[in-house]
Amino acid sequence: MSPPHVLVLTRDHDPHADHLRQLLARRGARTTVFDNRDYLVRAHVELAYTAHGLARRLLHTESGTLDLDSLTALWWRRPQPPEAHPEITDPSVAAYTALESVNLIGDLWEHLPCRVVPARESVFRRAGHKASQLMLAAELGFEIPETLIATQPDALWDFHNRHDGQIVTKPMGMPWVENLAAGHTVIRKCELVSPRDVGYADALRFSPVIVQQYVPKRLELRVTVVGRQVFAAEIHSQTSNRARVDWRWYDLGVTPHHVHRLPDEIADRCLAMTERLGLAYGALDLVLTPDGRYVFLEINPNGQWLWIEELTGLPISEALCDLLLEGA
């Protein structure tokens, strides 16, 4: 019997993938790492059909040929999109071939007959839509912050006044903006709205933004769901001026992390959230308020976990290995 074989889709220099590959190897599993960006440059796909259906599905790389139908599992970690071949110099042709490659590769991973973690791309992309997440969370019984998504300055001013200025903004999707001309990247996370920001409210008409009531925090929680297992870590973000509004600014030296015991009903809602979204994995962000309420903020269908594991000892990586090898 052949050993289990997991295909990991990710970019170079991914510590999460490297760590899990070592754990899978200890269990006797084989792993292959592939980045979609290598397609046409260092790798090729071969799909063949007879008059009656699929005949073969092969991935040719510099290290050999992989029969994609032999895979035990596919882990969609963090691959980059395919690019045009570097020998193409015409920008319009390059854009066209890159789009054609995206269409093929996206369709290829969508239909493999194996377990896919966190989910097939079409599923977890849809699961990442924050407006839909808020509706589902409320439907499942989570408390959510009062929220406004609009492009009208008057709506922002009204929301700001109703909450005495205690509001935050966050991006709809991408948390960064690349300024190619200046050669740097601007990071955009959850931020308090200042009086100066309100003065520029007219710019809201150019792009949608999420505006929410600021939720007071005793703790922030990162709840990682792997299959049917729930791992909750408490992040004492209020001990750091840098991380108190958004722990993702990371001030780990002064921000304690501990295992958190979720109430059963909150853990059940986290499981229901991933199940309803079609995810085998998900990282939920919650707030525990000073008066003991659990408030849902969002779920990341492909969120990081390694730092949580290192600081708390929660066996998230082992649970992921179990999930990827289940039934193998």
Rank of each mutant, 00 (worst) to 15 (best):
N161G: 00
L219W: 11
A138P: 02
L148D: 06
P91E: 08
L271Y: 12
W157E: 01
W75S: 06
L221F: 11
Q133T: 14
G327C: 04
D107A: 15
R162T: 04
R196F: 11
L58R: 15
H5D: 03
L112F: 11
Q229T: 10
V295G: 03
R125N: 11
Q212H: 09
E265Y: 07
R57H: 11
E110L: 07
P118Q: 12
V225H: 04
L192S: 02
V230C: 06
E87Y: 12
H60Y: 12
H16S: 03
I187G: 00
W76M: 12
P195W: 08
W109Q: 13
A138N: 13
Y39H: 14
V102D: 01
N36K: 04
I187Y: 10
D158H: 15
V295D: 01
A131F: 14
L277I: 09
G327Y: 10
A201V: 11
H260F: 13
G227I: 01
P82W: 11
R11L: 10
H236I: 02
P81A: 10
L221R: 12
I88A: 00
V215C: 04
V198Y: 08
L66H: 10
G53H: 13
E191K: 10
E143N: 04
Y49M: 03
M1H: 07
P171K: 07
V245G: 01
R188P: 00
P301K: 14
E310K: 14
W76V: 15
T89H: 08
D14R: 13
K130S: 00
K170D: 01
A98G: 03
S317N: 07
V123R: 09
D158C: 05
T97N: 03
T255N: 07
G292F: 10
L279C: 02
G199E: 09
V225W: 02
D251M: 05
V287G: 00
Y200I: 02
L219Y: 11
V225Q: 03
L314Y: 14
A137I: 06
N103H: 13
S122W: 04
G282M: 06
C270M: 07
P153I: 07
L271Q: 07
D38H: 14
N103G: 05
A55N: 05
L277P: 02
E298P: 10
E191T: 12
G282K: 03
P113S: 06
L324P: 03
M174S: 15
L156W: 08
R248V: 03
E220C: 13
T185W: 00
Q133D: 08
E309A: 07
D18Q: 12
A95R: 14
L279I: 04
D158M: 08
T169R: 06
T97D: 01
T50C: 03
I105E: 00
N300H: 12
S92K: 14
H16F: 09
T10P: 13
T239I: 01
L277G: 09
V223W: 07
G313R: 08
Y294Q: 05
G128S: 13
P171L: 02
L180W: 09
Q80E: 12
H44G: 12
